[in-house]
């Protein structure tokens, strides 16, 4: 239950600064704000769709700061050649969502 989050503090800082640069409203980014950023990765859309499925933990069609970090983490790992998992492994679930 007390598993460290795989998103390291220094990575979280980087993801947070990207998050803030996208103009979150009420601490939340809508899908249409996040989509172009993920498309920028040049990953296939079906992969990005799965990244979204895994990171929008409450399935409200928007990402908060922690959900966005999960999305970015998965995108960066995918760019390094790691497969995107079919379901979110516990260490990837933000501590705030457990």
């Amino acid at each position: 239950v007390d598993i460290p989050w795989v998103v390291k503090p220094e990575e979280k800082l980087k993801f947070d600064s990207i998050f803030d640069s996208l103009g979150p409203v009420g601490g939340i980014l809508t899908g249409d704000k996040v989509k172009p950023v993920l498309l920028n990765s040049k990953l296939p859309v079906d992969i990005l769709g799965r990244v979204w499925e895994l990171s929008d933990i409450d399935r409200d069609g928007m990402l908060d700061r922690d959900e966005f970090s999960v999305a970015m983490y998965l995108v960066y790992r995918a760019l390094e050649g790691e497969p995107v998992p079919m379901s979110l492994p516990p260490p990837l679930v933000p501590p705030s969502k457990r």
């Binding site: 899908g31 979204w52 499925e53 069609g61």
Partner: peptide
Amino acid sequence: QYPAGGSSTNPFL
């Protein structure tokens, strides 16, 4: 907000 027929909250679907 999402295309017609979409109850999906996923902008990539």
